[in-house]
Design a protein around this nucleic acid. Sequence first.
DNA 1: CCAAGGCCGGTTTTT
DNA 2: CCGGCCTTGG
Length: 782
Amino acid sequence: MPEDASAPGTLSARALAAGRPAPYLEGLNPAQREAVEALDGPVLMLAGAGTGKTRALTARIAHLLHTGTARPNEILAVTFTNKAAREMKERVSQLLGQTVEGMPWLGTFHAICVKLLRRHAELVGLKPNFTILDTDDQVRLLKQLILAANIDEKRWPARQLAAIIDNWKNRAWTPDKVPAGEANAFNRQGIALYAQYQERLRELNAVDFGDLLLHVLAIFQGHDDILEQYRRWFRYILVDEYQDTNIAQYLWLRLLAGGHRNICCVGDDDQSIYGWRGAEVGNILRFEKDFPGARVIRLEQNYRSTPHILATASKLIAANAGRLGKTLWTDRAEGEKVRLIGHWDGEEEARWIGDEIEAMQKGTRGMRAFGLDEIAILVRASHQMRAFEDRFLTIGLPYRVIGGPRFYERREIRDAMAYFRLAVSPDDDLAFERIANTPKRGIGDKAMQVIQRTAREAGVPLLEGARRAAESGALTGKAKGEMLRLAAAFARWHALALDPKASHIELAEQILDESGYTEMWQNDKTPEAPGRLENLKELVKALEEFENLQGFLEHVALIMDNDTEAEGAKVSIMTLHAAKGLEFPAVFLPGWEDGLFPSQRSMDENGLKGLEEERRLAYVGITRAEELCTISFAANRRVYGQWQSALPSRFIDELPEEHVEVLTPPGLYGGGYGAAATAHGSGLEARAARADVYNSPGWRRLQERSAERGMSQPRAARHQVIDLEAVSAFTEGDRVFHDKFGYGVVCAIEGDKLEIAFDKAGRKKVVASFVVAADAASDVPF
DNA sequence: CCAAGGCCGGTTTTT
DNA sequence: CCGGCCTTGG
């Protein structure tokens, strides 16, 4: 049995069972309480947005423990993200007033599968120390296979093949199980490549993310005794965000819950927005069939949003067919109606939202003042963020983009990690391939082929192959010397990595230094270079939390979190997907145009299903708002350089008029929003479009505001903090660096703003505090 | 082997 | 319009 069996954890179930009061039950509503107390048998907790789902879920765990029904290590609790897992751990500890270190099986599907797979790796032909490939490695591997099979790379781009394979894995299709229907002439090649890929992974003693689940599934399916063991072991199963599970995860859960059926799935079919990556809403819709006699508990009291917001979201989502159905209600005060506004173009939309946010900070339109932290802008696609970033940089409105390229996915971080990996395991060929010529060491295609051949013939890893090829003279010139140097360096680093007395932090710095990697970025003149050096510094700092490099690498393979900086009040900008699970007092939902939202591609590729998922996305967006929700659309938008006009989103038609207030567009660009909308007919969007712009409160307000702005240096006065120090730090001709626009030269100073001619981005006016002197930006990291 | 220019394509994202 | 990737020319 697992070693955890003998490790009881910090909670003593018996002590808890001794009859102390249950603080975690306080303040739960009847439905929540039912969900907490229905411990045995299958339970489906249908938890609408903002209904206290996490609260109920954590209380349920607390209840299992407190009543002594289960010990901490007998509960299997799965989440989708590490963040969710972490939060759940914290909240259970809070509820019970002590740390819950003894919950080894609370984690993401993937983290739990890694644990299981390391125990039984041999059963699927792996060694327990298998490595987990990231997407980058995966693609590189596939590229090699495609090349080796002499297949046209254009017909089979490695990226696309990776996506297809991922998809198959989501559906639990191993190469032999990909159904005939999928195996058209085109895909037959794909299946062959898939099979080769799996073969190659096994040789490399590696798995990709999908494999983590599939291998464990195969073990369960092929070894009744083992499955039986775990069924007995995991006496209670909890699943968060069940609507996001894919087929493989579903099969996995069904196997584990098959015996005792003590499974509690929590989710909301209306918030299923990950269909495109394999999530099956069907899993949640089918729950009662899969588990006959299941108890279905609906959490319908919403604690988050005002009635107007709730009613708007409910009406919208009602247009979807095949829902399980919930009636959300709230006893909150009425509050503001959902606001709707149309704009002439995307830039005006960004400008208006920027102005509105500035006004909201002081309180506007009779509303309370909002802090920047309380405001979020949620977009459909990340490219929409740009307009806002540009605008906010110009007016000096602090913002933060959530969920950009994740820290551990950035190039410099992956490179550095590859160095660390290779130092720890000199046989990590994928890592070697990644860094052999980064920085440039004169290793091109040809030299790499020589290394590959040497290694293959001698049956040694690539790093050792490179050393031999250099020694034997198979490599010449620059490549020869560099490879000898590199191999010697890795021999040194490897010894240090194994030495428990050596500091792994110093080792990391040493590796990045001696390899010339840091230097490579120092010599790089692109605007991103300083940021990359900064990231490397951060990476080294992250090492401090670990005992050694090995531990760190293991952690990072699974955890791709990036909640580093949080200082300062800022407006949040993120995609609707990234916003799931979050809430904000005030939410802006821009870009509600047909084609953009709902996305054309989604509708083309998935028809009605696609449209319904888009609608759920809209539902998720609206329900993020606590007090104020503002939807907007633009008649014209620049797409890939060209101007395109669009109709307001069909979702706008589906909003309930009585809960929506139509604001008047400023219509600065002559004509406001006109022809396009009237074509669409009546309803809200036509009203938003046709409103008499020149005779409306909105127009007057705009006039007032622009008048106010036009006279005297109002811009500066409008900001609470004018960073005079920041301005005075510069004079004309200074070389400066800006986070977004890169390097440039100051050509004028007005108020708190600088006009800068950027090398790449052209002339722009930006607030001085967003700029640093160029030499300060290129500080050496270590 | 590498740097510079042409061409194609271009949602959503976690592990 | 931008960025990645491939081709081309040194």
